[in-house]
Every structure is written in C-alpha cells, then in structure tokens.
Design a protein around this nucleic acid. Structure first.
Lengths: 219, 219
DNA sequence: GATAGTATGTTGAATTTTCAACAAAAGGAG
DNA sequence: CTCCTTTTGTTGAAAATTCAACATACTATC
C-alpha cells in the first residue's frame, strides 16, 4: 500500500489524516487494490453497492445505459477521486449505474460499512472519514448541479458552449483538454454525436472556438 | 420550538436524536424559523451559502434561471426535508441556485458552521448530525441520478413516462399526485410546456395514462 | 354568478435534432 | 509503410421540439 501514499494523500476522503495513520487505517478498513484494463467494468449495474472506489491511477466513467441501449455519461472520475460512495452511504442495495475504466486503472476498494461502523479496535479515524465523506458528497451534489446547468440548455450549441465555459472556468484558462472523445462528449451532453460534430465545425468556422482532438480553446 | 418537534423528528438530519436533546440542540445551533408566502424567495442566487434550510410546513422548489430567463426546476423540497445543505457543507461562498416557496412555508434556518464546528459547550451531537448530513447528501446524489435518468431521454414522451414511472414506484401505486403544475413539470423535465401538454393529451387518447390536473394514473 | 386573471390545451410554421449512410482522417499492428 | 480499425466529419431526409398565437378551462374574488 505504501506506494499509493502520495496519491491517497490527495484523495479528499483522507483529508487531514496523518500519513503514518493512513497505512494503519487502510489495513483496518480492509482496503484492497484491483486492476482494470481500458473499457473493463469496475462495477456493474445491479451489483451490491457495498464498496467505495478510489482511483489510484487511470480514470473511470460513471454511466447509465437505458432499456434501448442509449448511454449517458454521468461523470468522469479522475485520479485520487472517489466513486460509488453515494450508493454505499445511502444503503442502496443494488447499484443503479455502471462504472467502467476509461483507461487502464488501479482502483482501491473499501467496504463502506468498515467506514461507517466504528470497529472493535476503537480506531479514532471513523469520525474524520465520515466528515470527509460528507464534504465529498456535498461537492458531488454541486457537480450535478453544474451538469444540470449544462444539459438543461435546449440546443447542442448552447450545451456545448456552457460545458466549455464551465471547463475553462474550472481550469482557469481558455485553453484546456476535455476528458472525452466525441461520442463520450455527446453522451455527457445528452446530444447526438453527428450533430455535435457538425456544431463543433460550425463554431470553429465562426471563430468562436478552436479545437484539435480533445483540446479546446475559447476565442 | 416545541410545536415543531413532531416535524423535526421526521427530518433526516435529526435521525436517532432523542426528543429531549433536540430542543437543547436547536438552541445551541441557533436555529430560527422564518415564514414565506407563496412564490416568495427563501434564498436568492448569489446569496452567501451559510444556512441549511428545513421545511417545517409547505414546500419549496430549488430552481436555476439562466442568462435568457429560462427556468429549470432542480427539485421539490417537501415537509421535513433539508435544502441548501450541499452548498453550506462544501464551503461554497455564493448560492448557485434560488429557493422559492411553492406554497406558504415555515422554514427553519441553521447556520451550517454551527453544525460542522464543535462548539464550546462540548455538545455531543455534532458527530451524529454530521453522520446524518452525510446520509442525507448521499440520498440527494441518488435523487440527481434519477433526475438525469429522466432528462437524458430524448423525447418529451419518454421523459414524461420515465418521470411518471419513477413517481409511481416511489409512492408504490399507479395512481398518484405530482407536485408540479404543467409549466413546472415542463421546467423539471426540460421540455416545452406546449409540447408537454400535447404529449399528455396524446398519451391520454392512447389510453396509456389518465390524468386530471396534477393527479396521474398509469393504465 | 360575473369577471378578471391564470393555467392548460391546440395548432401550424420554423427550427433543431435525430437517424442513417457514407467519406475522410487518425491510430495501431504487423 | 501498408492495411485495418476506429474515430470524426458531412450530409439530407425524417422526426421532434420550439415558438407564437390563440382557444378553452379553471380559480379566485368581489
């Protein structure tokens, strides 16, 4: 576990937890690490929602696939970020989403009940973890508010421009990468891929944006 | 405060807190109650996100209004439910949403820092409140997942049917009320009101649903 | 119970998206 | 480098939404 310390210290779940305690804690929590190749399923929809996941390396996507096979991308999970915590914490039996590796991943899995229930060792860190989980969930809620701000727009153009503006604001620059290819961006914005491509071309022709692959620039 | 005890005991924020402690706790937290008439603004977008709100009576709506004046309804907040907690807990400075009274409301306001920071009285309930907040936020996250499941559908018909199905599942009956009028339902589903009305008429003509005002039935 | 005001339903034209099919470009493996 | 696969861009027709305008139904209040 030691080799992951650098990443874990950046994970919001472990904010304000001393490095020396972190190792001991992970043992107590029964944390384990699993590897997933690109496009492999980390959690499948319908699986028991017992585990919290932490991305140690690579990145993952939270997706929903409906009855007709249409995919929505709910969010992208990057290194040091936590996923599936809401379902585990809320006591949902089965996961309503699927988590897939966007690139080769190392994923740390922690049984959530080990966090929420004070253990027999009388570890003092449960309170801190619960506090951190609470803050993490609050930030997730805000992230969903932003996603709704984007997808509530009625045209592909407005959705795209709203997304790009928020992204620019987040990184603090008008020039940035996005974590999606065209199909994924369409599935995130809830629009058609071909229409999205056409809109990107138009915005480029109008001189509103510049882009090359997944690098965008607001002009 | 005593007259609100019955409602507060149903509020998820106070789960597993003894009635006798609740009163004392509210004093320590500096809880106050304010009244709002129908359509009045409880929190305005841009206001400091210091307070958590609890609906004691009536109901409220969380809305976003964009640059062009288009309204999105993010959620309906019913009696004994909490709102604005995500922004307060995440330490956001300004609210990105507006909260308006959907009917005349009694609202309890609690300065979130009084919950998160242990007070000088050494009250023992902070840990429990934080745990409850964490669970509440987890449930909110799941609620947003459901909203995305609805609004990710591409046609008005599918959005409406998905919404009605989830609503039926929630109340455990194919016959139920919804907390929205037509315009509000449109603003929740992210569709046009006139198109929504037309779609409701069509579904009714096809014998898929029955409805009268805000009462719906799946057939 | 008449009336004003709000909410809901209806309709056709304009706009936009979706769908399907294909072309072009990019990337990977040998 | 070439071949093969995947991704991205383009296009036109079909479908759906939006918009605007108006008709009808409902509600509250005097």
């Amino acid at each position: 576990m030691k080799k992951y310390l650098g990443i874990l210290k950046k994970c919001p779940l472990f904010d304000d937890i001393e490095e020396e305690n972190l190792i001991r804690m992970l043992g107590c929590l029964g944390a384990k690490v699993e590897l997933f190749d690109k496009k492999y399923t980390i959690f499948a929809e319908g699986a028991p929602a017992k585990y919290i996941g932490i991305v140690l390396s690579g990145s993952a996507q939270i997706i929903q696939v409906d009855y007709y096979g249409n995919r929505s991308i709910l969010s992208e999970v990057e290194q040091a970020e936590v996923f599936a915590e809401a379902f585990a914490c809320a006591g949902v039996e089965a996961l309503p989403v699927t988590v897939v590796a966007d690139e080769p991943c190392e994923i740390m899995l922690i049984n959530c009940s080990h966090i929420l229930n004070t253990c027999s060792n009388n570890c003092g860190f449960h309170q801190k973890l619960i506090f951190n989980l609470m803050q993490d969930l609050a930030k997730k809620t805000i992230m969903f508010h932003q996603r709704i701000e984007i997808t509530s727009k009625r045209t592909t153009r407005e959705k795209l421009l709203t997304y790009l503006s928020l992204r620019a604001k987040k990184v603090g620059s008008d020039s940035f990468d996005i974590p999606f290819d065209r199909q994924e961006l369409a599935d995130y914005l809830e629009v058609e891929r071909s229409g999205l491509s056409a809109e990107i071309s138009r915005l480029r022709a109008e001189g509103v944006i510049a882009c090359r692959k997944n690098h965008f620039e607001l002009l």
